[in-house]
């Protein structure tokens, strides 16, 4: 503060008057848009690779990692199988409660896997013991499991996830990436054709059920996906 009273105020007034004529900092938003830095992480969009196809592999890792479970998806995975992981939009309300439970640390009955057959876990425990519960040796664990059970039962995958601490979605992603790993028991030659038709029938039935459940505005989407399947 200077000795002369009022000098500071006068200097401040001069400064604001100088700024009055200076170029402005405002960006006129809808006309002018700032460049987003390449590393910006706030983009909500699916990325495409250099061939113009979607990079998303429907691995559900994002959906599983999303803390408030706002990410949802339905689609066709790398093996051409149709998934709707979390269920129809009508059940969003239930799922909200579910996720609240999950975040509070309490166990949640998982509707999605309720119908899968249980397995006898002793053999799997032995395998996991052999690989030291190490999630970085996941492929070896999965190989050994398939050798033991003949395929990868969902219950086994969930147990592996529980014991090693790896996300289920990551294990599922690993398993679905390798061609030699399978989620269903191998069929004999004559049986294979029957299984294939049965599976197709099951899928058609599932899609029909889905169609019915999504009646109304979303009916067309279900039909379109059914058409693209066949």
């Amino acid at each position: 503060m200077s000795r002369l009273p009022g000098l500071g105020i006068a200097m401040g007034m001069a400064l604001t008057l100088k700024k009055f004529f200076e170029p402005k900092a405002t960006i006129r938003y809808p006309e002018v848009r700032l460049d987003v830095p390449p590393k910006f992480r706030g983009r909500l969009q699916l990325l495409y690779d250099e061939y113009g196809t979607l990079k998303c592999e429907t691995c559900f890792q994002c959906a599983q990692a999303c803390p408030i479970e706002c990410i949802d998806m339905g689609g066709i995975d790398t093996k051409g199988r149709y998934h709707i992981h979390w269920g129809a939009p009508e059940t969003y309300g239930e799922r909200r409660d579910e996720s609240a439970l999950r975040r509070s640390g309490r166990p949640v009955p998982d509707q999605a896997y309720a119908h899968f057959d249980p397995i006898h876990p002793v053999k799997l425990e032995a395998i996991l013991e052999r690989f030291d519960f190490d999630p970085s040796r996941m492929l070896e664990i999965l190989d050994a499991t398939q050798a033991e059970y003949g395929h990868l039962p969902v219950a086994a995958l969930k147990l592996i996830s529980q014991r090693t601490g790896a996300w289920y979605a990551m294990i599922y992603g690993t398993a679905s990436y390798y061609r030699h790993l399978r989620f269903e028991p191998p069929a004999a030659e004559p049986l294979a054709a029957a299984t294939a038709t049965a599976r197709a029938g099951r899928e058609t039935a599932f899609l029909a059920g889905l169609d019915a459940s999504l009646a109304g505005s979303s009916r067309r989407r279900g039909r379109a996906s059914a058409a693209s399947r066949s």
Partner: peptide
């Protein structure tokens, strides 16, 4: 420095 000049010298503020 420029921005500070508005306040640091201002009698009312100080």
């Amino acid at each position: 420095e420029n921005n500070l000049g508005l306040l640091n010298q201002n009698e009312i503020f100080v």
